Amino acid sequence: MSCLMPGEDFTLVVVFPLWPTFHLVGPLSAIDLSSSLSDGSKVRVAYQGLPGAYSEAAALKAYPKCETVPCDEFEAVFKAVELWLVDKAVLPIENSVGGSIHRNYDLLLFHRLHIVGEVQLVVNHCLLGLPGVRKEELKRVLSHPQALDQCEMTLNKLGVTKVSTNDSAGAAQITAAERVRDTGAIASVRAAEIYGLDVLAERIQDDTDNITRFLILAREPIIPGSDRPHKTSIVFSLEEGPGVLFKALAVFALRNINLSKIESRPQRYRPLRIVDDSNKGSAKYFDYLFYVDFEASMAEPRAQYALAHLQEIAKFLRVLGCYPIDTTL
C-alpha cells in the first residue's frame, strides 16, 4: 500500500472516473447547455417553491437572465434536471442559523447529478401584509417553519399565532389569496411584489447575519480550473476500526488542504453495523456516510493525490462536484 508521501511522483491515474456516469434520454431542445453566457440567458433553472422563494433568488443570482422553473418538492427538482426538462437546479444545502438541510444531502447521493457551482444568499426576512394593513393589526403570520423560528423574537413581540406552510413564497400567496386583514406572511421583498402585498417590516430575523448556501446542479460536471478558488465536494464511507476517520481526514491535512465542511449521515439502507469488539458480545453502531467539502480544485495535483490516498482507506468514495467558490457576499 502506498500513501503517496512525500514525493508523490508516481504516474497519476486521473480521479475523474470516480464520478459516476448516468445515461439519459436525449434533450428536449437544442439549447446550449454549456451556460457559457455569464448571465444565463439560455438556461432553465429549477428550484423548490413558488415564484418569490429564496431559492428563486439564488437561481437569479447565479444566472441573472435565466428562466426559473418552480417545483413543488426537492425530489422534483432533481428529476427535472435528469429528464432534460431544465438545464440546472438550485437547491439549499445549509443555513447559517438553521444548519444543514439533510434531505438534500440524501438526495445528492440518491441521484447522479453533479455540483457545478454554489451561491451564498443573504436572507432578508420581511413581514408582509395586505395593502393598508399595519403590522400591529396582525394576529396570524404564515411562513416556512425555519423562517418562523428565525424571526421568533419579532413574532413574540407582536403576539401573533405562527402558522407553518411549505415555503415562504407560498405563505405570501396564501395571504394574498385569502385577503384576511389580520393575516400576514414572512417572505422576501420579491414575493411581496409578485403577490401584491405590502412590506410591513424588513430584516425581522433574530440573527442579522442569516445566510443560506445553495448548490447548483447539472447533468454533467464542469472541467475544473485553477484560475480562481475552487471547492470539491465528496462523499465516502469507511470500514470500522480505531482511528479510521482520523486517517481519512489526514490525507487532506498532509497536503495542506483546508476542509470547509464535514457532515455525517447514517446510511439509509444499512443504518446499523454489528461489531464484536469484546468478549462480552456484539454491539450495534450507526454506519455513516461522510460528506466533505475541501478547498482545492481537481485540477491541482495535491487534490488528486489526496483522493487517491483516500481511496485506499475508504470502502466507498464518490466525487459530487468540483466548482468555483462563491465569494460575492
Rank of each mutant, 00 (worst) to 15 (best):
I115W: 13
S260M: 04
N124C: 08
C3Y: 06
V292G: 03
G170F: 08
E73T: 04
L85I: 15
S282C: 04
G26K: 07
T175D: 04
S297L: 01
T208K: 14
K79L: 07
L128C: 12
E312L: 06
D287F: 06
L307T: 10
H23E: 12
A177Q: 08
I186E: 12
S34P: 06
H23L: 08
E312S: 12
R134I: 13
R203W: 10
N166E: 14
S34D: 03
K79C: 06
K42M: 14
N279T: 02
A185W: 09
D167V: 05
A172F: 09
P324E: 02
P324M: 02
P27F: 10
L28G: 15
P242D: 12
P27N: 13
Y105K: 09
F246T: 03
P70Q: 03
D207E: 15
A296K: 00
E73F: 05
E263F: 09
D9T: 07
D106E: 12
I93S: 01
D182R: 11
C126V: 09
V97R: 00
E137R: 13
C322Y: 01
E178V: 10
G129T: 03
L310Q: 10
F252G: 00
F294D: 00
V69C: 13
E193G: 06
Y54M: 05
A172G: 11
Y269H: 15
T21M: 04
V319M: 07
H114A: 10
L121G: 11
S278A: 11
A176M: 02
E295T: 00
T165S: 11
P92S: 08
V119C: 15
V160N: 04
I186A: 08
A218L: 09
T327A: 00
T11P: 13
A308E: 02
T21W: 02
K79E: 15
I313D: 11
G225K: 01
N258V: 00
L245I: 06
Y288R: 15
P27A: 14
I204A: 12
S29M: 01
E295M: 02
V292C: 04
M1P: 09
E239K: 09
P70M: 01
A296W: 00
L12K: 06
N156R: 10
A253F: 01
L249C: 07
S38N: 05
V292P: 02
R268I: 10
